[in-house]
Each structure stands twice: as C-alpha cells, then as structure tokens.
C-alpha cells in the first residue's frame, strides 16, 4: 500500500477477511509470508497500526474522553497534551458534549465514532478497519461512511478497510481488493478513479464511473458466492 491510500478488501463472508486484518494487526500469528510496516516485520500488536473493530471494542468502564485518550495514555503522553488532543478528535467525530458519558449511554453509531476517534487519536501509521459499520442501521451507516471519507481527507491517514458491503468498498476505496471464497486468495484489484472530495452518496449514485466500478466488484463477489 502507498502512503495516504484508502484500500478496501471485499469478499464473501468466511473468506478470511477478518483473519487477514487480525494478522496485520499482529493479533494472530502467521505461518507463511511476511507482513511489514515501513519495512519492519510485524511481531505483535503495536501502536503503529490502529484497529477499528467490527463490534464495539471501546471499554464500558471508561468515559468517552478517557476511551479516546487511552492510546495516548498508554504512550505516556502528559495529561495537558492529552486533553488538548482528545478535544480535537472529539470535535472531529462530532461528539462534543458527550465527553463524560459512559459507552452504555450512547447509541451504536456514537460508540463507533468513539472507536474511530480512539484509533485516530493514537496517531497510527496505518489504520485497519474491520467492518466498522456492520452493526449500525442503514441511515447511520451512510452518514458514518461520508464522515469517514471526510476524516480520511482531513487526516491523510493510510487506511485499510475490510468489508462485505460492496457499496461501502466502492464508495470509500481508492483500490478494492476482491478475495475469493475460502480459502481466501486475492482474485482481482479494482481501482476507482473518483476524487476523494467528490465522494458524497447523493452524487456518486448518479455518477456512471462509480456505478460501473461498483457493478464490476459486485459481479466479482457474486461469482464467488454462486459457486457454493
């Protein structure tokens, strides 16, 4: 992957997308091949790779602010600096006013914003996202996708998104990696040439360039599902 890229991995369920992500994150050991970040092999989980999980992985016993600042706390950033950075990211994900709430008082979409802010706040080199919007309702998902796009522009992060949602992959990704069904292997790479700042749902659905790419990916994925 190159710097600042937004890559999306799509494939039928059970093809090992989540496993791939867990290996990249260093949470699972790998048998063959190598995983490197900036040329350094991955040995275990570390703060250079931030992960946003499928389920809500934010800690229920920490407030929103303490969850977002958790990464900085673990890196030993002093409190003043931490507070400043946390405020910045609270604003970025639009959670101002909710800093002192506990996660169980938030909606599913808000919890996922906290998870996103927590990962961003730790300032990783690359951000890995595992179906981050799978557990939220359709309207919220669309809003969050547009916001993720906005945040990706604002922070210029390198992001790898794993999803089974073809629309999501096509909407967010610069490049989409399509995987085969189990055992998952790379099947095709689809590049999407739409400028990032033009990616708004209302506009892209009317854009033939977008729909064509999306349908291409959809066909690739459906071919895999059909061969059950």
């Amino acid at each position: 992957m190159y710097d600042g890229e937004f890559a999306a991995v799509v494939g039928p369920s059970g093809c090992g997308k989540t496993t791939l992500l867990n290996i990249l994150a260093g949470l699972l050991p790998y048998r063959h091949g190598t995983v490197q970040v900036d040329g350094v092999p991955v040995k275990g989980p570390g703060s250079d790779r931030g992960v946003v999980f499928q389920e809500h992985a934010i800690l229920p016993w920490r407030t929103v602010a303490r969850n977002i600042g958790h990464g900085l706390e673990l890196q030993g950033v002093p409190r003043q600096e931490r507070r400043r950075r946390v405020r910045e990211f609270v604003e970025l994900v639009g959670l101002a006013g909710f800093e002192e709430r506990y996660p169980h008082e938030l909606s599913g979409g808000m919890k996922q914003r906290v998870a996103l802010a927590r990962t961003l706040c730790a300032n990783p080199v690359i951000m890995l996202m595992d179906e981050p919007f799978a557990a939220v309702d359709a309207q919220t998902r669309i809003t969050l996708q547009e916001e993720l796009n906005r945040i990706a522009i604002a922070t210029r992060k390198t992001i790898l998104l794993v999803t089974h949602n073809v629309d999501e992959a096509a909407f967010l990704g610069d490049r989409c990696f399509v995987f085969t069904r189990r055992p998952g292997r790379l099947k095709a790479t689809v590049t999407i040439h739409i400028p990032r700042d033009r990616r708004i749902w209302k506009e892209v659905v009317a854009d033939p360039a977008f729909t064509a790419r999306r349908d291409e990916i959809l066909e690739l994925v459906r071919a895999e599902v059909r061969v059950e």
Binding site: M1, D3, L20, G33, I126, T158, L160, P183, G184
Partner: peptide
C-alpha cells in the same frame, strides 16, 4: 513514508 505489504495472503486458515 508508510507502506504495508503482504506477501502470500494464503495464510488465512489458522486458529
């Protein structure tokens, strides 16, 4: 510069 490379992603069956 940041880069992330995966060689042989066929290792996804473990665990």
């Amino acid at each position: 510069m940041s880069s992330l490379s995966v060689a042989r992603p066929d290792l996804l069956r473990s665990a």
